[in-house]
Design a protein around this nucleic acid. Sequence first.
DNA 1: AAATAATAGTTTGAATTGAAACTATTTGTA
DNA 2: TACAAATAGTTTCAATTCAAACTATTATTT
Lengths: 198, 198
Amino acid sequence: MSEYKTEQPEDEIKPAVIISSEIPDSEYPAVPRTSYGLRVLQSLRRIIRAVDLHSRKLSMQHNITGPQLACLLAVNEHGPLTVSSLAREIHLSPSTIVGIIDRLEQKALVLRRRSSQDRRVINIEITSKGMELVSSAPSPLQETLAKALQGLPEIEQITIVSSLEKIVKLMEAEGIDAAPILVTGSLVNKLVDKKNKP
Amino acid sequence: MSEYKTEQPEDEIKPAVIISSEIPDSEYPAVPRTSYGLRVLQSLRRIIRAVDLHSRKLSMQHNITGPQLACLLAVNEHGPLTVSSLAREIHLSPSTIVGIIDRLEQKALVLRRRSSQDRRVINIEITSKGMELVSSAPSPLQETLAKALQGLPEIEQITIVSSLEKIVKLMEAEGIDAAPILVTGSLVNKLVDKKNKP
DNA sequence: AAATAATAGTTTGAATTGAAACTATTTGTA
DNA sequence: TACAAATAGTTTCAATTCAAACTATTATTT
């Protein structure tokens, strides 16, 4: 797809408009220019991106990513954990966990051990090498955030935390029963069908 | 990796402990049990997951994902956009945009047109099919969030929005200059080296 | 006890994401 | 004008993420 050829159709379309982000965009006007929903979503996208970038930096500098570190810390703190407990603990699906554990196991930071009680379950244990890493661990995002938060008055810290937790509630509730809201009829399905046959 | 064999080493390790998420976990104690940083991070992970799950549901029901819809709406609103403007607009890297546009183009919702002024730039235009989809669009996450927020008193809405925007500032600032905080020495690099040779 | 259902972990497939390396083009400089 | 540097978009690569389908094991039902 788009193999870097110069054979695209020509234009004569008005040039790309100057968009709002040309203006320094962490400055919001006192009077909201857009809806709260939009601003929340915009913020969330940027937060998600910041988390991802942090993880990549971690990966560059310490050869361990954010999710990997999160799993390692959880196993270190709680002792051996099954895949599903770990999934619940850090709010990821089991299929996601498997890949992360694969990579941690490759690096010999954890190991899988099958239970003899119930041979379906796998216990994930931290290795000595894993413990070594944890004890001299790179400051996880958590601590960095904590440090950043400490620069604010405590009332504000509390406000931020409880706001976030409220958003979580809203979004997770939405996930369960926003389906009726989303189902605007299957018109769109007809417009955009899987095979895109004209 | 872990090809579903039964040959793993046996255990005799204490069984996986009962972890906190066994307890209904959107209920937080009045007295914080953990640090603010941890709670913020926990919330962020859950929010990120909720966004992802929403996108998947959208994809199931309407054959368009969240990021795809975000791009489509941006192009619809601003008129033809270049890849880099679009990247700035929705806070994603250009390489990410390319993949998303590829898929939108496959579905004939947008098209690429190379500028004749400057043959390096590609303008992304919405097609009639794209406009049709937008006009009867599935409620984007933005609106769903807005609806959810409307259930709260406005003061609270404002608090939430400004808290989120504060977090954005903290995290994006951190992204720029938290490097010194993160660099805890290269010890970890020695513990976990790329090739894991013993 | 045999058949069925439930559970635990895994694999597969697709989308998203960004850094780094790359191609093509334009701009700036010697 | 020729050469270097900057810019725009792309490709490649790896990690994350989840649903759905799958294997192996345990629990339940008939």
